[in-house]
Write a protein that binds this DNA or RNA. Structure first.
Length: 111
RNA sequence: AGAGCAGAUCGGAUGAUCGCGGGUCCGCCGUCGGCGGGCUGGAGGAAAGUCCGGGCUCCACAGGGCAGGAUGGUCGCUAACGGCGACUGGGGGCGACCCUAAGGAAAGUGCCACAGAAAAUAUACCGCCCCGAUCUUUUUCGGGGUAAGGGUGAAAAGGUGAGGUAAGAGCUCACCAGUUUCCCGGGUGACCGGGAAAGCUUGGUAAACCCCAUCCGGAGCAAGACCAAAUAGGGAAACACUUGAGGGCUGCCCGUCCGAAGUUUCCGGGUAGGUUGCUUGAGGCAACAGGCAACUGUUGUCCCAGAUGAAUGAUCAUCACCCCUUCAGGGAAACCUGGGAGGGGAACAGGACCCGGCUUACAGAUUUACUCUGACA
RNA sequence: CGCGGGUUGGAAAAGAGGUAAUUCGCUGGUCUCAUAAGCCAGAGACGGGAGUUCGAUUCUCCCACCCGCCA
């Protein structure tokens, strides 16, 4: 069985990395999210999450981040290796359920 | 029973699967460290706003004056406060109770639009009265007295009555209201109660300047300390004490300190990044004691988040809570009781150095004391 | 996280206790064969809630929103 953990190695953790990904990555948009994909040399697949202040207060922002990480964790095996991915939440999506998030992102990643 | 008022407590619970970050122990690889496993604990009453106060850290341990800021009934509590408690004055409510930036306007300055005669030194508009002139008289003009009457305004120069007067006026008197001073009694005090005298009365505004009293050094954990790739060439210490540029100490001044350029010695400084500060503390809980209370003391007991692109989530089940629909029983009905079935809801909100407060947001639940109205006894 | 500044018609922007200017835009009229320009007239605002005051856009306090600085 594929492991479903989500450790520190699998996160994008520095501002520099984010800037690199923003510059080099390919962007895909949907209603609520923007996904940026960029190759990275390390061999790992990594996730970064960006939720701006416009989206809501701290509770809402935290909830969105958790939902996005949950999605990444559970559908890791279907994602390509050696890719950095940053998901940006565009608006207040804290009322969405986890399943709604899954559907929308899965759609988005097919493109 | 209804309406209300002041507090206090809580802020869903349990389980399963997957997952996150901390501490600790064990094992393996092993230079830091990494990997795996076990155990343990992991957001709030406001964690929020950042409105105050303090601890802590650095700035040269910070002295004086001016400027600036804050507070403003009294007494207390406290590490401290702009907080809290008790009490006093004022205002509101039938009441429980609530609100109160509540020192000084008889230090000075300013302002008080429009209206009004006048907005503070009453320069008198109408009116009333006296005198003089004019004239047959009413009239008209001039000089003066008068704040009792008028209308205006948010606010009009103590109120009522009597005397008094040419007309009037605290001009005088009685009562009442208020101010200041003094005395007596009570209280730690704000102040309260009683009495006497004075001048006879003084507009409002200090969240206008200001005066008085008290307090305040500046920055802030992105403080500060340590390790240290890259890059750039200097940096630090000691001595000497002449000129002292320039800089720092709070905005300015005084005052004071460092100090370029000299000689000698030494090798360090520092960005990315990392470590530390970082959680045992004015700490929580319980009992007893002191105090009206805020709070304090003693004893016992407990260890309860330390992340850093930032950890608490997702899915499911059960049980409680609320709402809606439907069903059964009782009833004439309103409705009451039961809980079978289905559906929905569950607030405000997330630590970022730590505490004490304040303020603001908040579905609902539990509970205590008290007040008013109605009924019964 | 900490520290500062601001909010006035649709847009910009003065006013600092009593009447809210001004410019552009908008609407109607006039002029023109018609449009523009010009001229005349008009509508449309003090971020919300308390307090001080006779009276707050202005002063004080509390919220909301926006902007900036410190890596």
């Amino acid at each position: 069985m594929e492991k479903q953990s989500f450790g520190k190695k699998e996160r994008v953790r520095k501002r520099k990395n984010y800037l690199d990904i923003y510059q080099r990555g390919r962007r895909v948009h949907s209603n609520n999210f923007t996904v940026i994909l960029s190759p990275n040399p390390s061999g790992e697949k990594r996730l970064g999450v960006a939720v701006g202040k416009k989206v809501g207060n701290a509770v809402k922002r935290n909830r969105i981040k958790r939902l996005l990480r949950e999605f990444f964790r559970l559908s890791k095996d279907r994602l390509p290796d050696s890719k950095d991915m940053v998901i940006i939440a565009k608006r207040d999506v804290s009322s969405l359920k986890y399943q709604d998030v899954c559907l929308e992102l899965a759609e988005l990643l097919k493109k």
